[in-house]
Amino acid sequence: MATAEVQFRLGEYLEVAASDGEPRFRCAKCGHDLGPASGNYKEHALRRVAPLEEAGPLVGDPSRFIDDRMEIRQFFCPGCVTQLDTEINRAGEPIIWDIELH
């Protein structure tokens, strides 16, 4: 991994580096590999699913107003556990493939 050449930085915590000619995501803080750049890095991250109330100090229980089950999904770097991204989503919805590089 150390030999991989960084192609570009992507936001706060991701970078794309070429490893054996294949561009791959990795953690910009610790260098941990997060899968091929053409895939969803979230599938290579630690994932925590929590009730919506954990999305912020002022977020309450959504069942006050709606029947759909909502959740917060946190994605952490498996290396340094930095929070790479969060999703607020309906339970059962697929993970959002937020960054797909071609």
Binding site: L46, R48, F76, P78, V81
Partner: peptide
């Protein structure tokens, strides 16, 4: 985070 998260 480590304790409560699922591994990929």
């Amino acid at each position: 985070r480590r304790a409560s998260a699922e591994r990929p």
